[in-house]
Amino acid sequence: MDQQMAKQRSRATGAVRSRLVFEQLNPWVTFSYYVVTIACSMVFLHPIFLLVELLIVVGVNYVARVRKQMVMVLEGSIFMVAFIMVLNPLINNRGAHVIWTFGGTLITVEAIFYGFMMALSLVIVLLTFLSYNKVLTSQKFMYLFSRISPKLTLLTMITLRFVPLFIRRLKNISQAQTVRGINVNRGSSRQRSIGVVKMMEVLLVRSFTDALQTADSMNARGYGSGQRSSYQRYRFKQRDLLCLGWFIPLSGLCFYAASQGIGRMVVYPALGSLGLSLTGWLVLLGVAVLFSFPLILEAWEWLWWNLLKS
């Protein structure tokens, strides 16, 4: 039954029975991973860096089981990369190696290359958001930002809950209205618009009466009776601390290197060399480790269950 399947699915993304080790970490750790990786993909504009990052992000999405969406995004990105590679030289005339001119517009190798790198970095960010959506559920997001405004967080959570409810309800109402002869899809445009207005009215009236009941239930359980406490579901465990212990310093080092110009290919005014210095390779290793954080955890888990456990 679909309901049961949905149950299993939701269990898989739940905090306790998660598929990924990464999902079990405190939301703050998860969140810092995404902040760091997205920043990295925008800071290190170098083809080798970008390609390595892309490969690892694809790997992360693969283990995070968002393969279907990933294939869709990758298909779309081919066009996006092509589009940006064409657009950037058209609006950007910098660069030394001119390959074509028309009507005062210079098409340069540098601009095409820069467009390619920008597009690649954008693809990496898009792909990162796929696993982000899966791992950082709305609850975790709320947990992260509830400190800023508990009232607003509660309001947002209730609102988020109502959206799917609204959609389901609207479908049922439109079916019921069709049966009683008020049809939204047929008749003159006047009739149709009357139908739509009626339907929205029914939806609002119903949702309003239901919301009153929700308010009653909140009231009956003491909501608004004074100071509220806050129950945190995600505690900060030792493991989280250990993870942050190496992740944050390593990120710091990498960003320091970036500020020194390492891992940034010189494009303008003239295309620099593709090669990396020794420190360049070391920073690349560091970035690769940062990106592979979920994969490292997964690999360790696999090793433990398959080889180390006796």
Partner: peptide
């Protein structure tokens, strides 16, 4: 109350 859905406030 009567309606099981309307009394639930949070999402899990």
């Amino acid at each position: 109350f009567q309606n099981p859905d309307d009394q639930l406030v949070m999402d899990n």
